[in-house]
C-alpha cells in the first residue's frame, strides 16, 4: 500500500475507518471501511475499472466526485456503480466491468451466439 499517505505535512495523520477486506475480480484486497471503493483500488494499484462496450477501451478514475461515470464497475453483482462515491464495505465483491457486465467480452460473445 505504498500509495497511502501515512503522514501529511498539513493534514497530519489521515483518519480512516476500520481495515476491511474485499474482493476485486475474485482476488482478496484490503481497504478501509467507508472510503470510496475507487480509493481502495487505487491504493492497491488497480488502474482499470472497466472496458467500454463498443471499442473495449480501458477506463479508470477521472473526476473522482461521481460526475463523469468513468469509474463505474460491477459491485456485488450490480453494474454501473460509481466506485468513486460508493463507500467500501467488508466483503464487497468488486468486478471489472466489460460493457455493462462482469463477464468478459469473449464470454458475452459466446453467450450471445448460444441465444442465436
Amino acid at each position: 500500500m505504498e500509495s497511502r499517505i501515512m503522514e501529511h505535512p498539513i493534514l497530519g495523520e489521515i483518519k480512516k475507518g476500520r481495515k476491511v477486506s474485499f474482493y476485486f475480480d475474485g482476488k482478496k484486497l484490503e481497504g478501509y471501511e467507508g472510503e470510496p471503493i475507487a480509493a481502495a483500488l487505487k491504493a492497491e494499484g488497480v488502474m482499470v475499472h472497466r472496458y467500454t462496450s463498443r471499442k473495449h477501451l480501458p477506463r479508470g478514475i477521472f473526476c473522482a466526485i461521481g460526475r463523469c461515470t468513468d469509474c463505474v464497475m460491477v459491485v456485488d453483482g450490480r453494474p454501473n456503480i460509481r466506485t468513486c462515491v460508493t463507500p467500501l464495505k467488508e466483503g464487497m465483491k468488486v468486478q471489472t466491468q466489460y460493457g455493462v457486465s462482469a463477464a468478459s467480452f469473449k464470454e458475452q460473445e459466446e453467450k450471445g451466439n448460444e441465444k442465436i
Binding site: R4, I5, P36, A43, M47, I61, F62, A64
Partner: peptide, 22 residues
C-alpha cells in the same frame, strides 16, 4: 481517456480527502 489521465479535482480528492496519492 486512458486510466491515469485525471482531473485536478480528482487528484485533490484522492490525496487530501482519502489520503491516497494519485
Amino acid at each position: 481517456t486512458l486510466p491515469g489521465v485525471i482531473g485536478a479535482g480528482a487528484a485533490q480528492t484522492m490525496m487530501n480527502l482519502h489520503g491516497v496519492r494519485p
